[in-house]
């Protein structure tokens, strides 16, 4: 590890180090922000705010340590402190729409389902993608967060515990409950669509 502290760097050196180490993470960070806020403009603001905070505290960031986890932690805290209060939870998710969709369960008549409005125009892959996304979005934010961090971003339990300031045991139990919920949701969906996903 370098003994050159951020505070001793010239403005130019600091900027180029900052850009080289932290800006490449912007893609993951933006996607995290979008999955939390479910809104492109909010995600944009949240990422911008995160980088400004990171710049302000860059001297506390130890070179060679986990930059991605550090930025995710800043973003998560900004989201809790500023964004969550402003917006009344994920109002953008139309949960009732998802719900009523599942209530077609009684009709496992393929023909009837196939004739439903715009279903034919979409490919099966797209439909599954949409369904997975709405299932994920319908999770309360604490549960959604652990799925994003673990399954979409590949963080370890230890990293997640640090990002979220919770014990590893809590990370595990949130993951478990979130996954059981998603499994059930997507299984119901598969049944509705007439897939037999027990076939190996």
């Amino acid at each position: 590890m370098s003994d050159q502290r951020g505070s001793q760097l010239s403005k130019e050196e600091k900027d180029s180090r900052f850009e080289a180490e932290l800006l490449p993470i912007i893609d993951s960070l933006y996607n995290f922000a979008f999955r939390l806020t479910l809104d492109e403009d909010d995600a944009n603001d949240l990422v911008q705010e995160t980088y400004l905070k990171a710049y302000r505290f860059f001297e506390y960031f130890e070179q060679g340590t986990n930059a991605k986890a550090w930025l995710f932690r800043i973003l998560k805290n900004s989201f809790i402190n500023d964004f969550r209060k402003k917006s009344k939870q994920p109002a953008k998710v139309d949960y009732s729409e998802v719900e009523s969709y599942y209530n077609t369960e009684g009709n496992d008549n393929d023909a009837e389902i196939a004739s439903t409005s715009d279903m034919r125009s979409q490919s099966v892959q797209e439909l599954i993608g949409d369904e997975v996304a709405s299932a994920l979005n319908s999770l309360p934010v604490d549960f959604r967060t652990v799925i994003i961090l673990c399954d979409l971003e590949g963080f370890t339990y230890e990293e997640m515990a640090k990002i979220l300031d919770i014990p590893i045991g809590t990370v595990r139990s949130r993951l478990h409950r979130a996954r059981n919920f998603l499994k059930e949701k997507l299984e119901n969906y598969a049944k509705t669509m007439g897939y037999n996903n027990d076939e190996e």
């Binding site: 800006l23 912007i26 893609d27 933006y30 996607n31 979008f34 999955r35 492109e40 995600a43 944009n44 990422v47 911008q48 980088y51 400004l52 892959q125 599954i128 993608g129 997975v132 996304a133 994920l136 799925i147 399954d151 979409l152 996954r179 998603l182 997507l186």
Partner: peptide, 21 residues
């Protein structure tokens, strides 16, 4: 786990965001 990874679409970062940061 696989389905989540494969089917959640990644959003492209708006180019103005990087410039503005």
């Amino acid at each position: 786990k696989e389905v989540l990874k494969d089917s959640i679409q990644r959003k492209a970062v708006p180019s103005r965001l990087l410039t503005s940061i």
